[in-house]
Every structure is written in C-alpha cells, then in structure tokens.
Computed example of a mutant assay.
Amino acid sequence: MKCPYCSAPDSKVVNSRSSDDGTAIRRRRECLACARRFTTYERAQLEPLMVVKRGGVRQAFNPDKLLRGLTLATEKRPVTEEQLRAFAYSFEDEVQTPEISSEEIGRRAMNFLKPLDEVAYIRFASVYRDFDSLERFIEEIRGLKDES
C-alpha cells in the first residue's frame, strides 16, 4: 500500500480488526520509509454503485470523494472523523439500487449533517446547491431557523 504522506511503495500492517458491522477490515499501517501511520479499509466489492452525474456521465461511487467533501464542510467543527467515515463508508451499503444520482448523494449528505452541525450543513449546502448570491445563503439559514 502506497504511503499517503511520502508515497513510498511499502508499508507494514501494525493492527487489523473487523469493522463494527463486520463488512470491512480496518488495518493500521506504518510506512517503512517515513514511519508515519495511516488507516486503510478493505471490503468486498460485489457490484459497484454507479453515480449518475448532472451531465449524465456515470462513474463508480467513491466513498473517499464523499468523505473529502464532508471533511471540508466540517473543518474546525465539532464533528468527529469517525462519524464522517461511518457515513461515507456505509453509504454504499445503505443504497438499495444499482445507480444513484449525484443530487441524491448530496441530499443524503445534507440530511446527515443537518442534525450534527448547522454550520457544516450550510457549508456543504453552499457547494451542493451552488449558491450564487448572498440572498441564497440567507434564505437557507432562515429555513434552518424556521425548522428549529
């Protein structure tokens, strides 16, 4: 496994264990070159979930891409990495269809973030809904206040 820090090609497994739901194996690895540790997940892949993008292009679902978006939205917010990982890596298991639209992924991610942290929700919504003006931000925030 290539090190995400220094790109060295070799690492050793320090610890392995099953995930909480038993659908993946979590491995703690140590880079043999820089000695930094990182985590990998191994899971069986039966049929890849296909994402239908706004332009009609189809591509395989990538939980790391979803995790990246969630991580950006929750930066410096009181949401743990474990919460984000659990959502992103269980997402594919929750979807009952072979295809899902990118809009549906965004909607589900917003529904996940909304009860956790409203600021992270607004950050994610601003990208997902492509806010193009201050009025759209204010409208979304008012909607949050009305629901409270």
Rank of each mutant, 00 (worst) to 15 (best):
Asp20Gly: 11
Phe91Asp: 03
Asp64Gln: 15
Thr71Arg: 02
Phe112Asp: 12
Glu82Thr: 12
Thr97Asn: 13
Leu72Val: 00
Thr39Gly: 02
Gly56Arg: 13
Ser126Arg: 04
Ala120Pro: 00
Phe38His: 08
Arg37Tyr: 13
Tyr41Met: 08
Arg36Ala: 04
Tyr121Arg: 08
Ala24Trp: 05
Gln59Val: 08
Val52Ile: 15
Val51Arg: 04
Arg77Gln: 14
Gln45Asn: 08
Ile122Met: 08
Gln45Lys: 07
Glu118Cys: 03
Glu75Thr: 01
Thr80Arg: 15
Ala125Gly: 02
Gln45Ala: 09
Leu46Ser: 09
Pro98Lys: 05
Lys114Cys: 04
Asp130Arg: 15
Glu47Asn: 14
Arg142His: 13
Leu70Pro: 00
Phe137Gly: 01
Glu47Leu: 10
Glu94Ala: 12
Ser19His: 07
Thr23Trp: 11
Cys34Met: 09
Pro48Ala: 01
Glu92Val: 09
Ile100Val: 07
Cys34Pro: 10
Asp20Arg: 15
Ile141Asp: 03
Ser133Thr: 13
Gly143His: 12
Arg77Val: 05
Thr23Glu: 14
Phe112Leu: 13
Arg37His: 11
Phe91Leu: 06
Leu113Tyr: 07
Asp93Arg: 15
Glu81Phe: 10
Arg136Met: 15
Tyr41Phe: 14
Thr74Ser: 15
Arg129Asp: 03
Val95Asn: 12
Arg54Glu: 10
Phe112Glu: 11
Phe137Gln: 06
Thr74Leu: 00
Glu81Ala: 10
Thr71Gln: 00
Arg43Ala: 05
Glu139Thr: 13
Gln59Gly: 03
Arg54His: 14
Phe137Asn: 06
Arg37Val: 03
Tyr41Gly: 06
Glu103Val: 12
Leu46Trp: 07
Tyr89Gln: 03
Pro78Tyr: 09
Arg17Met: 07
Ile100Cys: 02
Met110Tyr: 10
Ser101Glu: 10
Thr23Pro: 04
Asp64Phe: 04
Leu70Lys: 01
Cys31Ile: 09
Glu139Asp: 15
Leu134Thr: 12
Val95Arg: 10
Ala109Met: 02
Val52Ser: 05
Gln83Asn: 14
Leu32Lys: 14
Gln59Thr: 08
Ser101Thr: 15
Arg43Met: 07
Asp93Ser: 15
